[in-house]
């Protein structure tokens, strides 16, 4: 397991470990920049299949950028992304993405069930009508996040936690193998956090892979199996037990973590 602890000194051209073809997401030498300042520089990361992985790092460290670049939503200056050993285009159908809920206008004229049905649009193509089976799949996805009673609600009437659940239901409706979530627990109530983590654990138990940008260090060990630490450069990756250490966190956050936070993590056995 020692070699999975990638250190800051690593660069894109690593050869000591071949890309695992079964890895749901493997990134090599990924560099993304806004203007002249790299948001990510030469980042390598390999995520394990059938596990829950967290992407952890300080604000502005490029966590969301990493997800977006891995999905091809923003252009990369360099680097390679493999999803289940394939190129992005070939693997599109196997990926479901849950963006930050603040990224859309919730006054948009649509209902909860119609948002979830958006997860089926790719199957429907341009011509097919929304069949009863499609509607049933969307309703089922809503039930899994505990929102079946909200199907016809206008989305502007939802609370923050309910919005997040609807976004998760839309991803579930895609029936994908890899779920990429951007800060799914940001600003949601405790009950929603519980509901979401239960859904994600159920996905994992069915062999699916979950990768989430996560900002709450105190729950990393409880929720996740694998962690990827990033702050512009890759700062470490591996099983939570071995890679999520106070030393690795201090390296990732620089001086930005209070000593008490690190002590707390030490006490919880991370």
């Amino acid at each position: 397991m020692a070699e999975t602890l990638t250190l800051a000194a690593t660069h894109g051209a690593r050869t000591d470990r071949a890309a695992d073809p079964a890895s749901p997401l493997a990134v090599r030498g990924l560099t993304v920049s806004y203007g002249d300042k790299p948001a990510l520089f030469s980042v390598d990361a390999t995520f394990p299949a059938g596990a829950m992985s967290a992407i952890v790092g300080p604000n502005g460290a490029g966590k969301s950028t990493f997800l977006k670049a891995a999905l091809g939503l923003i252009p990369a200056v360099s680097g390679e992304v493999r999803v289940f050993g394939q190129g992005l285009a070939a693997a599109r159908d196997r990926i479901a993405y849950v963006p930050q809920r603040a990224s859309v206008d919730w006054d948009f004229p649509t209902t909860v069930i119609d948002v979830v049905l958006m997860g089926r649009y790719r199957r429907l193509g341009l011509f097919r009508r929304v069949s009863r089976a499609e509607r049933a799949a969307a309703t089922d996805a809503l039930a899994r996040v505990g929102m079946e009673g909200f199907a016809d609600r206008q989305i502007g009437q939802l609370s923050g936690g309910q919005q997040q659940r609807v976004f998760l239901a839309r991803a579930l409706a895609q029936e994908a193998d890899l779920y990429l979530l951007d800060e799914p627990f940001a600003g949601v109530d405790a009950a929603t956090e519980r509901a979401i983590i239960d859904v994600l654990k159920a996905l994992k138990s069915q062999g699916q892979s979950v990768i989430a940008v996560h900002h709450d260090l105190s729950t990393v060990a409880e929720y996740f199996d694998h962690v990827f630490l990033v702050n512009v450069r890759a700062m470490g990756e591996g099983p939570v037990a071995t890679a999520f250490t106070p030393e690795a966190l201090a390296r990732t956050y620089g001086g930005r973590l209070a000593a008490t936070q690190l002590d707390q993590l030490r006490l919880t056995g991370a």
């Binding site: 977006k68 599109r92 990224s103 948009f108 958006m118 341009l126 839309r170």
Partner: peptide
Amino acid sequence: WLLRRPMTLVAFDPGYAAATG
């Protein structure tokens, strides 16, 4: 009429639309 679904998707959530191809 033909493009109503992709146009709705892009208008509501362009990031998600792009992620689904």
